[in-house]
Amino acid sequence: MTTTQSIVTAGADAKAMRRELRRAERGGPSMSPGRRRAARRESVAGYGFLVPWLIGFLGLTLGPMLYSLYLAFTKYNLFKDPEWVGFDNFVRMFTDDPQFMQSVQITLVYVLVGTPIKLAAALGIAMLLNYRNKGSGFFRSSFYAPSLIGASVSVAIVWRAMFSTDGPVDNSLSFFGIDLGGWVGNVALVVPMMILLAVWQFGAPMVIFLAGLKQIPQELYEAAEMDGAGPVRKFRSVTIPMLSSVIFFNLLLELINAFQIFASAYIISNGSGGPAGMTNFYTVYLYKRGFADLQMGYASAMAWVLVIVVAIIAFILFKTSTRWVHYAGENR
């Protein structure tokens, strides 16, 4: 089954659509003219609402995407016309490129360790903020502030200062008797440092969680309290299910973002992926191959390997989501 189809079946109104199709099949040609007219009207409305998106998708996104898929099977240095090389790029990737392998490893560590921590921090803080309203504007803004910083050399300077020898992180850890020295130049601690940078900028998922928490009707908590539920119980049986659609969104998007980590690593390492390749994350490496080394064919092949991997993960998430994600608008 192709990924496209898989996501289709898990897609937006998939369940409803399947129901509709089944009904249509059952009804077959004997489907009443009124129903058919209604269905047509729905289609017109659907595509009508989608007009801007369709123009953007067909006009701006689809073509370049397909072109990059084609480039994945070519040798292309941006200057001469692409030259078809079949699967060469993919073979080189998996058999003859130690940098690629290292890049995959550190990216996986970054994704698998960083994403859960970031989401937990975002959800935890969002719930803390939602707990009382006092000064919440101040706190919300403070917690979001780190996420405001764009990818400029200032971030590199600040972050290096935080994690250098005798910097604030080193000093606070030493206070607790943990003597790690500076993180910036320590090959073993660079990936953790990058993870902490990502966690520090947890503002986006936090705000989305907050918006989701605001959508939960207060009556549900009151009802749970009437039933004698404690805070843990309320969290498990009201917050989590009611927030599940937002958790699902954040989980999926943060995973995708983490796999595509680029700006912070690029800035911190000045585009080199150093020290010792420890910030040479997947997309950083892809970018270097494409634009610095002018191996756009290879870079495109790398991009599509990533697409396939992330698509499989997304597919699994969508599949399992039917079991744990609850939509108030679709639960009937």
Partner: peptide, 11 residues
């Protein structure tokens, strides 16, 4: 000068 120190003072 060690590589670690160089990393800390980048850029």
């Amino acid at each position: 000068i060690g590589q670690q120190r160089l990393e800390e003072i980048y850029p």
